[in-house]
Amino acid sequence: MMAAIQATLAGLLIVAGAAFFFIGTIGLLRLPDFYTRVHAVTKCDALGAGLVLLGLAILAGFDGSGIRIIALIALVLLSSPTAGHALARAAWRAGLEPWYRKSGHVGQ
């Protein structure tokens, strides 16, 4: 019973993480400019990888490898938003203009 709950929970988390990766990748391909793409990819990195790793940690159980995976989650949650921030900031300081909707289309 316990094992079944564990497996179900882990499977749900991994599928949710994969869904975030999928959405993030669609965003990378479809969004109009650099800033919005960084926004999409950072979500996909932090939440997608975080959820998949959380699922794997539940599957591994609370032993050596489970704790290591939780440490990995902490590292990913620290480094991924920082990388996104650094990229967006560098682009802004280098003078890249953000995309905006043409004024004719506003309010439609």
């Binding site: 920082t82 921030h85 650094a86 900031r89 560098a90 300081r93």
Partner: peptide, 10 residues
């Protein structure tokens, strides 16, 4: 362009 001041977050 590469030598922008370092972000406090990073």
């Amino acid at each position: 362009t590469t030598r922008v001041p370092v972000s406090p977050v990073v």
